[in-house]
């Protein structure tokens, strides 16, 4: 089997059929994405009401003037539309294109909200999952095929995203990126953000360790970039749980060293990184035994 076929099989080859556990697992994943998307749509929509100027146009705002979303209630109406369309999509009521419409409306919501300079990535995996549902529900009719495609497609872009993050660092700075003194500068930057947010700031033990030792700070950065680099191996089914664990650990490390939280990334990695339906089907006999005891 060549590499292309191997990757295709690992991403889209399983399961052979949908058990109750698979259907339940898929709906839990979908429910989480729907919940996060509704949450983001309202959070961004309500915050956009405070914005009255465009500093940095993002995405579609480079082509059209996104200021039509400011100084009025369009962001709230958009959040309402996204919420309703997601409910119809979740229960498979109406057109197969509803997730695609949500994807477009959510993009408008994002560029209206983040038009004043910030380019956050904390919601990217949720956005990519909506993209997966948009493409998967539109392109496939059969529930088994949708399952295989949507899960595989989402995992494909998770692996690619982490890998491209590591390559960006190697291109942007080079191997010297891991120099621990770079972490000092980021810790000072993020500390300033926390000071601005909270009005006060104290270093935690990980930050103190990094600031007191160049080798320790260098090791932290090396582990970070190495974990991102091997993130692409999440494409392979057998390695997936180990890579997911490593990536979750990396996000925990980023949270401790730089106060940056990626909660939705971690939750999505937990859901998609482990073969929960297969484990349930394998051990359900034992679960039954425990219930009887």
């Amino acid at each position: 089997m060549n590499l292309g076929s191997l990757i295709t099989d690992n991403l889209f080859g399983k399961p052979d059929n949908l058990t109750k556990a698979h259907r339940f697992y898929f709906k839990i994943f979908e429910l989480y994405i729907v919940y996060e998307t509704i949450n983001l749509a309202w959070e961004w929509g309500l915050y956009t009401l405070k914005i009255s100027d465009v500093v940095l146009p993002l995405g579609i705002a480079n082509i059209i003037d996104i200021s039509f979303m400011h100084d009025n209630y369009l962001p709230v109406i958009n959040a309402l539309a996204i919420s309703l369309l997601l409910l119809f999509s979740f229960f498979r009521i109406g057109s197969k294109w509803l997730y695609a419409v949500v994807f477009v409306l959510l993009h408008f919501q994002y560029v209206a909200r983040f038009s004043i300079g910030e380019i956050p990535h904390s919601a990217n995996l949720v956005g990519m999952a909506i993209f997966s549902f948009a493409v998967g529900v539109a392109a496939f009719k059969d529930e088994l095929h949708r399952y295989r495609f949507i899960i595989g497609f989402t995992i494909f872009y998770i692996g690619l995203g982490y890998f491209s993050a590591s390559i960006s660092k190697l291109i942007g700075t080079g191997p010297n990126w891991i120099d621990g003194r770079h972490l000092w500068l980021w810790i000072a930057e993020k500390s300033t953000d926390i000071l601005s947010r909270e009005g006060q700031f104290n270093y935690n033990f990980v930050q103190v360790l990094a600031l007191n030792s160049i080798p320790a700070a260098t090791l932290m950065l090396f582990i970070g970039i190495a974990t991102e680099f091997i993130g692409i191996l999440i494409w392979f089914r057998k390695l997936r749980p180990y890579i997911a664990l490593a990536l979750i650990g990396m996000h925990f490390g980023v949270m401790m060293s730089m106060n940056i939280r990626f909660d939705s990334f971690m939750i999505e990695l937990i859901i998609l990184g482990f073969p929960f339906p297969e484990l349930y089907n394998k051990y359900k006999g034992h679960l039954h035994y425990f219930r009887r005891v």
Binding site: S164, A165, S168, K169, T173, D179, L185
Partner: peptide, 9 residues
């Protein structure tokens, strides 16, 4: 392509 933190120092 997740370019945040790509330019260190």
């Amino acid at each position: 392509i997740y370019p945040m933190f790509s330019k260190a120092g």
